[in-house]
Nucleic acid binder design. Structure first.
Lengths: 200, 200
DNA sequence: TGATGGAACGGAACGGTTTCGTACCGTTCT
DNA sequence: AGAACGGTACGAAACCGTTCCGTTCCATCA
């Protein structure tokens, strides 16, 4: 290795090539492959072909497959601010039906593609839960806390149990029962399961 | 292929070697590997090594990996009759905490190992849902129908929504949140989510 | 302005490993 | 004896990580 300085340290852009746009294309291609075949069957060759990049480029930029996939996941977190419709019911339906919610096909495909991997790889699971699940859970928690402040939720309700119920029910219907989540199903689950659990 | 009859049809074993016990050992080994590494990374070599069988034997008996895995799943449905404690609450807790329930580690590992595969392979998904999920769902349905006959469930409750809620919540907590399902969690979910949904 | 050097790129190939499905053994049980 | 078994080995294919090559783009400088 040449003893070249690793970086200038300043903000002067010395590396104009794979700076932003091209890198994002590669990450998008990674997510597409991930959603299509799953983590275990995702190969660097497939990603390179889909992104029209060479494997050499991938390995110049990323250490390997886990690092590439994780960075692709983190770069994907599009801003989805929590809705504020004034009622818990409206917030839940808006949140889970909208962009990034349970009706987003690629979002759901990514979920399904990763469950097996995180069941086996503890390190992968930790990053996934912290950086992918965490923000979503925090947003949903916000909805419930606002509802509690408005008095919509009984005092003795254990939010730790109730909050994850909605995504759990919907994911189960999708993957185990094979039912595409529709707005109608989400509404029925909210009305018949979630709301009765918080207001008795 | 020779036009041989697929099987005798009777229970007379024409194949004395790999007939019953040995075959079950291979299927058990298949399930163990499946639970350990998942469907995509399960290989015939791993199964052969784990079962101390030769790959030739596997290919003599099964056509390939999908057939072997599916048959292993079907042969695994140990008889788990629905409990009858007299109350819906007792039945649910007994059913989901007991053998074959959500606290069975291998059962859960198999679930996680298959979700990615059934998200991609429609044929595999159909067999899995019909022969693996189906019996479990039917058993749970039986619990709810008995409870409804006893008057424990309001008339306007949509069982299609409520019944899959409990497994959904528990699976989500296990795989997405990384929480081992304990009897205590199952009880709290039943008391705080399921029962309020059926009796308002 | 025009030429030059360097860095990053795409494409291709490499060796080493893994998997699959099959074939060939010697052994064991009926 | 004969059939089925376990073990081994094989070729084909896929994958991984690396390393070539030739090209393209950019910054620098005459």
């Amino acid at each position: 290795m040449s003893p070249q300085a690793k970086e200038t340290g300043t903000d002067s852009p010395q590396r104009p090539r794979v700076e932003g746009e091209r890198e994002q294309e590669i990450l998008d291609a990674t997510l597409a492959i991930l959603a299509e075949v799953g983590y275990d069957l995702l190969t660097m060759d497939k990603v390179a072909a889909a992104a029209r990049a060479s494997k050499a480029t991938l390995y110049r930029r990323w250490k390997g497959k886990p690092e590439l996939v994780i960075e692709a996941l983190l770069a994907h977190k599009g801003e989805h601010p929590a809705p504020d419709t004034g009622t818990l019911r409206g917030d839940l339906i808006a949140s889970f039906c909208g962009a990034g919610g349970m009706t987003d096909p690629q979002q759901m495909a990514i979920m399904g593609s990763l469950i097996t991997a995180i069941s086996r790889d503890a390190d992968f699971a930790e990053v996934f839960r912290r950086d992918f699940i965490g923000p979503k859970a925090a947003r949903t928690l916000q909805l419930f806390e606002r509802a509690r402040d408005r008095g919509e939720i009984d005092e003795d309700v254990d939010l730790e149990i109730v909050i994850p119920a909605l995504p759990g029910i919907l994911l189960h219907r999708q993957f185990l029962l094979g039912e595409e989540p529709t707005d109608d199903v989400i509404t029925r689950v909210v009305d018949q399961v979630i709301l009765p659990a918080v207001t008795r």
